[in-house]
């Protein structure tokens, strides 16, 4: 069953002056340009791209935070998202209090949160004494534990995860990935943006490469990583070596001729 469908989605970006005021006369810029893709039950879709390429904007569009300036975005089911680690948390509130706020912000009712509190706390691996302390004494990783524990306890059919798992320690990352795997097996559609290309290769069925707001490639993880590497240097990200064959190429300039590749739909091209 199709859970996510984006048809020609554009997102306007409003430049601001150094003072933070909007520049009314400046030309319209686009954070996303004509992005289309779909995802089905149990599928894990990765999103890779340089910083500022539009990954988070795409996730925010999927989460319903941003309404498309043009185009259609349809989600069938309940969305749970971990887009910003610090969002919704207050450092003066305790972990317990932040769990309630974070969960309600993800659409859980207060009674649901109370019912699942023990399970959320157990998943986080934090003791009661820690959860009763203000978040100001927590490390980033401990904050992530709370945020992720809440996210996976929402009865979601679509899970959106941004580049946040990198904050957690290795053991907790593994717990998170195991949980994501279980959610996939239960039919949850997962969309994850990450710079961790190994993680993308292991976990994703399909990967989107976003570059300057455009979807320039959609296909299998290995080919996507290759395509991503061909976009140009990004010192923070290891570039994978080229591999032959790709399943779907969006750029008219770099259209592959490999077998098994889907035809271009005449969409965006690399600038």
């Amino acid at each position: 069953m199709e859970r996510i469908r984006l048809d020609g989605v554009w997102q306007e970006f409003r430049p601001r002056s150094a003072h933070g005021n909007r520049r009314h006369k400046s030309p319209v810029k686009w954070a996303l340009e004509d992005v289309s893709f779909s995802a089905h039950d149990g599928e894990t879709v990765g999103i890779i791209g340089h910083n500022g390429s539009g990954k988070t904007t795409l996730l925010r569009t999927l989460a319903g935070v941003l309404e498309p300036s043009r185009g259609e975005c349809r989600i069938d089911g309940r969305v749970s998202s971990l887009i910003d680690l610090t969002a919704g948390v207050n450092r003066d509130l305790t972990g317990r209090e932040n769990i309630m706020l974070g969960a309600v912000l993800l659409g859980m009712t207060r009674s649901e949160v109370r019912e699942r509190y023990t399970s959320i706390a157990t998943f986080s691996g934090l003791s009661d004494s820690v959860l009763n302390q203000p978040l100001s004494v927590y490390s980033s990783g401990m904050g992530l534990r709370i945020a992720f524990s809440v996210v996976v306890h929402v009865d979601a059919t679509v899970l959106l995860v941004d580049e946040v798992l990198a904050v957690g320690d290795e053991a907790f990352q593994q717990i998170c990935l195991d949980r994501v795997t279980r959610l996939r097996q239960e039919g949850c559609t997962v969309v994850m943006a990450s710079h961790d290309l190994d993680q993308i290769r292991v976990f994703c069925d399909r990967v989107l490469v976003v570059h300057q707001g455009r979807l320039v490639f959609e296909g299998c993880p290995d080919d996507a990583v290759t395509r991503y590497g061909a976009l140009g240097p990004d010192p923070s990200i290891p570039v994978a070596g080229p591999r032959p064959g790709s399943s779907r190429e969006r750029s008219g300039q770099d259209r592959p001729s490999a077998p098994g590749g889907d035809e271009l739909d005449g969409g965006a091209t690399l600038p």
């Binding site: 996510i4 020609g8 554009w10 569009t61 999927l62 989460a63 319903g64 935070v65 941003l66 309404e67 498309p68 300036s69 043009r70 185009g71 259609e72 975005c73 349809r74 989600i75 309940r78 969305v79 207050n90 003066d92 509130l93 209090e97 309630m100 706020l101 309600v104 912000l105 993800l106 659409g107 859980m108 009712t109 207060r110």
Partner: peptide, 26 residues
């Protein structure tokens, strides 16, 4: 083009109670 917003709108009653509670705690 038509535009459609995706995602889940959060139920307002529970969120309002939670935000009020947060304010009082803070």
């Amino acid at each position: 083009s038509t535009t459609t917003r995706a995602g889940t709108w959060i139920p307002s009653r529970d969120l309002l109670i939670t935000l009020v509670e947060r304010k009082l705690r803070l």
